[in-house]
Simulated scan of single mutants.
Amino acid sequence: MIKEIIVVEGKSDISAVKRAVEAEVISTSGLGINDNIINLIKKASKNRGIIILTDPDYPGKKIRNILSSEIENCKHAFIPRDKANKNGNIGVENASPEEIRIALKNAKAEFSDNRQEFTIKDLVYYNIIGNDNASKLRGKLGDELGIGYCSAKQFLKRLNSFGITREELEKAINSIYEIKE
């Protein structure tokens, strides 16, 4: 049983999560999210904590941003796009129970202490920005680190706010290059 309440976008996502784990799940009703739903999630966050598990697409990112700007004490879980894809349809409901369990196990809390472990210079140094393969590398690193795919600016923010260490980043980079060879 997962202690935190898992927040997903819709009814199909609820079913998929319940097939994977024993947990309480709340739906945002997709982009139909409103003040009543946000207040319900805030209450859940205060009482038990929440894990945000939205689809790895634009609406999912938008919902995640709305929730994390409104609610404290939340963790973020990410499913890689290629693991949540069924015939071009991207969503949590298309992920296998195993992928959902992995995402939830690797959920990360967001810190708001303005930690600055990494800078733009680090992203350039590690080739995470500024070259033709940077976007692909960010995607692979986001999956490996459990912070999801995002733009360079968002990637930098997530590295710092999710408490990723330099050692963790370098280990993930080395892992990706080992797989490639």
Score class of each variant (00 low, 15 high):
T165F: 11
K153A: 13
I147F: 03
V8F: 02
R166Y: 09
V25P: 00
G88P: 13
E9Q: 03
I41V: 11
I37Q: 01
L104T: 12
A84G: 05
A107F: 01
K75C: 10
S69D: 14
E110C: 09
E9A: 04
C150W: 07
T165H: 12
I100E: 02
G88C: 12
G148H: 09
Y177R: 07
S15H: 08
S69M: 06
V7W: 03
K157V: 10
L145C: 00
K157E: 11
R158D: 03
I5M: 06
D132E: 14
D132H: 11
I2N: 07
E99T: 11
N133W: 02
L159P: 06
S151H: 01
E93W: 09
E144K: 14
E117S: 07
Y126S: 01
K42V: 12
G91N: 02
I164T: 11
L67K: 12
Y126L: 02
A77E: 08
E72D: 14
S12G: 06
G32M: 04
E170T: 10
A172L: 12
L123R: 05
N73H: 05
E98F: 14
A152W: 06
I179E: 14
I128T: 01
S161H: 10
L156N: 00
K180Y: 11
N114M: 08
R158N: 03
Y125P: 00
T54M: 06
D122V: 02
R81I: 15
A77Q: 08
E22R: 10
D143H: 01
E9L: 01
N174Y: 11
R115W: 02
F162P: 00
E167W: 00
L104E: 09
N73I: 05
A44T: 03
I33Y: 05
Q116N: 04
K3P: 07
R81W: 06
E4C: 02
L40Y: 03
F118Q: 07
F162A: 07
E98A: 13
A23I: 13
F162V: 09
K18N: 10
K121Q: 13
G139Y: 07
E144N: 08
L145K: 04
I63H: 00
G10K: 00
F155K: 12
I164F: 07
L67C: 09
L159V: 05
G32E: 08
P59V: 05
K43V: 06
Y177E: 14
I51W: 03
D113F: 07
S175P: 09
S68Q: 14
K46V: 07
L141V: 15
G88R: 08
V21Q: 01
S68Y: 15
Y177P: 01
S175D: 13
A16T: 04
S12W: 03
E110F: 15
Q154H: 10
A95K: 09
L40R: 10
R101F: 08
N131D: 15
E99M: 12
I33D: 08
E72Q: 12
L31N: 12
I179P: 00
A134K: 02
V25K: 00
K75G: 10
S45E: 01
D35Q: 14
G49M: 03
I79R: 06
D113N: 15
I63N: 05
N73D: 08
I71A: 01
E167S: 11
K105I: 13
P80M: 04
N34Y: 07
T54V: 08
K108T: 07
Q154V: 15
Y177T: 15
Y125E: 15
N89L: 12
G146E: 04
F78I: 12
E167P: 10
E72S: 10
K108S: 04
A20I: 02
S135E: 11
R138P: 05
N87P: 04
T165D: 11
